[in-house]
Design a protein around this nucleic acid. Sequence first.
DNA 1: GCAAAATAATACATCAAGGTAGTATTTATG
DNA 2: CATAAATACTACCTTGATGTATTATTTTGC
Lengths: 136, 136
Amino acid sequence: MNFNKTTTYAFKVLILMSHNDQLDYTSTYLSEKLNIQMQYLRRLLTDLSKAGFIQSKRGKNGGFVFAKSIKNIFLSDIIDAVEGLEKFNSCMLENHDCNKEGKCSFHDAFGEIKNKMTDALKTTTLFDLKEKSIIT
Amino acid sequence: MNFNKTTTYAFKVLILMSHNDQLDYTSTYLSEKLNIQMQYLRRLLTDLSKAGFIQSKRGKNGGFVFAKSIKNIFLSDIIDAVEGLEKFNSCMLENHDCNKEGKCSFHDAFGEIKNKMTDALKTTTLFDLKEKSIIT
DNA sequence: GCAAAATAATACATCAAGGTAGTATTTATG
DNA sequence: CATAAATACTACCTTGATGTATTATTTTGC
């Protein structure tokens, strides 16, 4: 029910940037605004660039801007890029064979609720979050 | 949406033990059956004893048995004892002030679904899991 | 009461996530 | 073209979760 710190940072950065999705944001600004250490944030930003969410401009007046529309960035994409989606799709008890035989009681009990969460992550975009569209 | 390894071990152990909740289970048996390393499992079992879920019998013919009815052991209790419940109750983005001001878009979007999961954990017992009662 | 079988406790090892520092590279602008 | 402001890269440090080993303690049963 949680993300690791790096994923949490990624969300915070991208959500902040989506407030004005045409602007260039410097790592210094993001670092101060979000209380994330510079060097760590830099690496993350580079990773997010390589993943295609944002693009960097080096040099003076540089920074980071979205590389594509925030209507096309799904939350699951972000998770997948940073920490991987596997554990969100897999059984909560990591019984890798429980899907086959259905012998995992956790899977039976929480499968439905877990699917709802996964579906929500797969269908919600940064734009949706910005608009605070509520998932039902 | 996941537990740490120790919590996962705890669930596996207690779910296995609940199959026959009157039996003494030795750490050797549990270790082999569940593929959990002995020494680590021992510590976990001791912790689970101290938390009141099971009790230990030292000496020959010793082992571990439930210290109370599996109808009274809620999944949330187990999580709380092993890794703490905080992160399951808190905002997914760890905005510790988002409850007050409602400015966290994640909280708005996923609050409901998250509450459902938390409620399920708080109302499901080991006995329920054994009976595979489905949460709706 | 001794030996075997079990848990208890403690200390140390390993590994990955997260954090820090220093240097290199790029680019806009005067 | 030199400088300042920005990102890129690389190497190392720290810490907590997980894993391992050793020794101590308890209890049963012969």
